[in-house]
Write a protein that binds this DNA or RNA. Structure first.
Lengths: 232, 232
DNA sequence: GGAATAGTGTCTTTTAGACAGTATTTG
DNA sequence: CAAATACTGTCTAAAAGACACTATTCC
């Protein structure tokens, strides 16, 4: 019985929610896109340890600050043509990483917009499309009642940065004024962090993640796109 | 590498949230309370199939209508003194079952109030206390934005029945008038189902589970007990 | 001053919380 | 009628949605 670990690593690049995918260099599914991951390194390795190890290998970063949580087990018969493989999927959230994914052991790794996989446009190896879908839905849901959105941001961020996260993950535009009021009045969500930075226009005030991990009242996601007049 | 399935089967009995536990007849943890479950029946059995099979064996019921969802993987090193056992936990929700749990293959099976395990009063075999805690927290959370509460009820139920579910799972009293208004105005949550039944007092109107699985707006759980004047 | 971005304020609608009263059944 | 249970209504407070305006920086 083989046990594998698959990683759904989500990040924001150019205001678009993206997932890290690698091009498979071997059969089965040679040339197809797949989630990074691999088998347990040895029989005694814990699954969580394997997930952390793979995450470090794939992102080439210090992984201690990254959000990593278990997504679920996937073992539908026939999901792997090589035989019975039980895969444990993990969801990782990363702030914007340096452009080249350094230190990757997979040949071609790239950040792909998740939209391509939520509808039927592109397919992935194995059942990885379903795993990506589940991972995105988990992220969407957790943005409602947890402070997960701050895991997409750097240590300090502006309210506009945070709104970008919500808009990209939920896939809908939000009103900046109501959004700012909401996050500022949700206790323990964000905490002031120093002064403004320098850009064109008024400098934004910066914040850091607050002490609370669960939000009350929650950020309620509208069931449908609120108004279909996006940017004019 | 051994793979096991553990079941957190929750139900309501005497207005108390309970979990099905068995007394272990063998080492390790002989005599201790544990979750029902077991190893895969054969190498080709899928984990989901094993969970369904165990659920049928333990409850002795037609399992087709019961809610069953994956909870997570537990494989902390040392969780099982026999060696490396990877356990996949499932959460099952059952309406009130016939009093004796018929057809059970475990020696002594009983419905225990979950309160005993959420604080430090009683312990369980292996890491089953953590699994129960995670299962209850999953149920509490899903009651907020999904129609899971109807899975605790029979096919038809009164609003008071539904309120009993929320009070037992969340562990806090709710106002009957506001609760009724809330569930009646949440579209697709419950649908009228025929007429009243016979008891002492005015007969209650009956409902069935509505078409919607996700609730909007959600049932928001107060962060703390709302008023500490329970029943006088 | 003008462009660009950040932030605050106000009005309205919706939803939640607190509470008192009315309705329908059984005995 | 009394007791028991089910249901409806009203007032208030909180939160969300929909807007228009002011503020600070760079050029």
């Amino acid at each position: 019985m083989l046990i594998a670990v698959d990683l759904v690593i989500l990040t924001l690049r150019q205001s678009v929610l993206r997932v890290l995918l690698v091009e498979r260099g071997e059969e089965p599914y040679r040339g197809a896109l797949a989630l990074p991951g691999g088998f347990l390194a040895h029989a005694e390795e814990s699954i969580q340890a394997a997930a952390t190890r793979e995450l470090a290998e794939e992102t080439g970063l210090d992984v201690s600050g990254l959000h990593l949580e278990q997504l679920g087990v996937y073992d539908e018969p026939g999901r792997d043509p090589r035989g019975r493989v039980v895969s444990v999927a993990y969801l990782a959230i990363a702030p914007q990483l340096p452009d080249p994914v350094a230190g990757t052991d997979a040949a071609d790794a790239a950040w792909r917009p998740v939209d391509q996989f939520l509808d039927a446009r592109c397919d992935l190896a194995f059942d990885h499309k379903r795993i990506v879908t589940d991972g995105v839905e988990r992220a969407r849901s957790k943005l409602e009642h947890s402070a997960l959105a701050t895991a997409f941001c750097d240590a300090v961020f502006s309210i506009a940065d945070l709104q970008e996260v919500y808009e990209a993950v939920w896939g809908m535009p939000l009103d900046p004024r109501n959004f700012a009021r909401k996050v500022r009045t949700t206790e323990g969500f964000i905490a002031p962090a120093g002064q403004a930075r320098a850009t064109a226009g008024r400098p934004a005030r910066l914040f850091a993640a607050g002490p609370n991990k669960t939000l009350y009242p929650p950020m309620v996601r509208p069931p449908r796109p609120p108004t279909l007049k996006e940017l004019q």
